[in-house]
């Protein structure tokens, strides 16, 4: 048995699922770390300090990418569901999602990377 190759729609759907799961994972971790405050401010502050490490900065860029893709493709999915006639253009709509994604992602990622570098040097 080999993988089903499918088309653009299948990969859009898979990315949508993965980015959704990624965001969910972040939310769970975020709820857990916020809950640490129940054990006192000291522990909370020490754990939150870990997040200032550059590796988490990179994770944050990843989180932004996941949220952004999920939101943009989400609009495509809603459009297809509510306007069946538009579904004929689902590939073009996906191309628009990709273009919009990079238009927004690149500048934001540059700014975020700047912050990480600043944090490392000073």
């Amino acid at each position: 048995m080999s993988l089903y190759r499918g088309g653009i729609g299948q990969w859009a759907w898979l990315l949508h699922r993965l980015s959704g799961l990624g965001v969910l994972l972040f939310l769970v971790i975020h709820i857990l770390d916020t809950a640490l405050v129940l054990w006192g401010a000291d522990l909370y502050n020490r754990v939150i300090a870990i997040y200032r490490m550059p590796i988490f900065g990179i994770g944050e860029i990843g989180l932004f990418a996941a949220v952004l893709f999920h939101a943009l493709n989400g609009i495509r999915v809603v459009a297809v569901d509510f306007r069946p006639a538009w579904s004929v253009y689902h590939k073009q709509m996906f191309q628009a999602v990709v273009v919009l994604f990079f238009l927004i992602f690149i500048p934001v990622a540059v700014i975020m990377t700047g912050h990480i570098l600043e944090g490392m040097h000073g």
């Binding site: 089903y4 499918g6 088309g7 653009i8 729609g9 299948q10 759907w13 999915v77 297809v80 569901d81 509510f82 306007r83 069946p84 006639a85 579904s87 004929v88 689902h90």
Partner: peptide, 26 residues
Amino acid sequence: CRTVFNCVDACPRGIQVTRAIGEVKQ
């Protein structure tokens, strides 16, 4: 149906399957 569109790509008759499913959903 999660609008994956594999059906549209696979249909040898070129039927807009996802569109038909969407019309039933509507």
